Computed example of a mutant assay.
Amino acid sequence: MSLLQLQNLTKRFGGLVAVDDVSFEVPQGAIVGLIGPNGAGKTTVFNLITGNYRPDQGDILFEGRSIRKLPTHKIVALGIARTFQTIRLFPKMSVLENVLAGCHCRTHAGAVAAMLRLPFQKREEAAALAEAHAELAFTGIEHYADQVAENLSYGNQRLLEVARALASRPRFIILDEPAGGMNDFETAALIRIIRRIRERGITVLLIEHDMNLVMEACEHLVVLENGANIAEGTPAQIQADERVIEAYLGVEED
């Protein structure tokens, strides 16, 4: 069953067509990669899914329900989380506090309950702390919990973004270049984390320029060029597709 469906999605910025009639599906429980040359429209597609942009045409269905007009916080509440190509942490807050921010969308106690320290607020706070520590342990950075987020290495800041996204208890997670700034050892660890995310029942859609990661982690790939679909299939099929080779490498003129 398809968890996410993009139907003839189009987004324009003035005279520029950033996403041009894009359609694809993400099956529930899959790891799907969205790839293409720089400027192909990949991050714009992500921003359309998560409500940061509104499509000019087409529709976005999550579990069969249109989400194209929903605000970002309601999309998160449905179970869609993301990381960003440009890291967006709270740099002066601790690592643990950053992950707790991801828990916020699942808490219910208001300001009055917090000020009065009511029993249910205390229980909710304790549960959020436990969950935040669990996600830090899952991503392998729990020993940095008390450090200020901006002091982490670039690769560990990427993992912190993943931990924060997981703390919102998503059913669908969108990873925008999660291996950016990582060395080979860190990238190999990230591949294991992505697979373990899927083992938790969370569907994964990712953009990544590291083709080794994409080919190893993903089961299905969608390729964009100039905002439009040019290919779709398994990693082996995509590696052999002449349109994809031309998009990435170009062709020699006669």
Results as ranks from 00 to 15, higher is better:
64 G>A: 05
93 M>F: 14
93 M>T: 06
56 D>P: 03
71 P>Q: 09
89 L>V: 13
77 A>K: 15
49 I>D: 04
103 C>T: 14
70 L>P: 01
98 N>I: 07
78 L>F: 12
55 P>M: 09
70 L>S: 07
53 Y>D: 10
50 T>C: 13
103 C>A: 14
79 G>C: 05
56 D>E: 05
68 R>V: 04
84 F>R: 00
63 E>V: 01
69 K>M: 11
48 L>Y: 08
61 L>H: 00
70 L>G: 08
68 R>H: 12
66 S>G: 10
66 S>F: 01
93 M>D: 12
97 E>F: 00
75 I>H: 03
54 R>K: 15
50 T>Q: 06
95 V>G: 05
51 G>E: 09
79 G>D: 11
79 G>Q: 05
82 R>S: 08
91 P>H: 09
82 R>K: 10
56 D>C: 03
70 L>K: 14
81 A>W: 04
66 S>L: 04
54 R>V: 12
74 K>D: 15
47 N>E: 06
78 L>M: 15
93 M>K: 14
81 A>I: 07
56 D>V: 04
57 Q>N: 14
89 L>F: 02
66 S>K: 05
89 L>G: 02
101 A>T: 13
99 V>I: 07
72 T>P: 03
48 L>G: 08
65 R>L: 05
53 Y>I: 11
100 L>V: 06
94 S>C: 01
68 R>D: 04
85 Q>D: 13
84 F>M: 12
88 R>L: 01
78 L>A: 10
87 I>P: 07
58 G>H: 06
102 G>K: 01
82 R>G: 08
49 I>R: 01
87 I>Q: 06
87 I>C: 10
100 L>C: 07
54 R>M: 10
57 Q>V: 00
95 V>F: 01
80 I>Q: 02
93 M>C: 11
81 A>P: 08
90 F>C: 03
94 S>H: 02
83 T>K: 07
90 F>E: 03
55 P>W: 09
85 Q>I: 00
49 I>C: 05
87 I>F: 09
57 Q>I: 00
74 K>C: 02
50 T>L: 06
57 Q>A: 13
90 F>N: 00
52 N>R: 08
84 F>L: 06
72 T>I: 15
78 L>D: 11
50 T>H: 10
74 K>L: 15
94 S>E: 03
101 A>G: 15
59 D>G: 04
65 R>A: 13
101 A>S: 12
66 S>R: 05
63 E>G: 12
67 I>A: 01
102 G>V: 01
60 I>W: 05
87 I>H: 10
79 G>I: 09
101 A>I: 13
56 D>M: 03
50 T>R: 01
66 S>I: 02
91 P>E: 12
50 T>F: 08
58 G>A: 09
75 I>W: 00
87 I>A: 13
100 L>W: 07
98 N>Q: 12
57 Q>T: 09
91 P>C: 11
91 P>Q: 12
66 S>H: 04
97 E>W: 00
49 I>W: 12
59 D>H: 07
77 A>Y: 08
78 L>W: 11
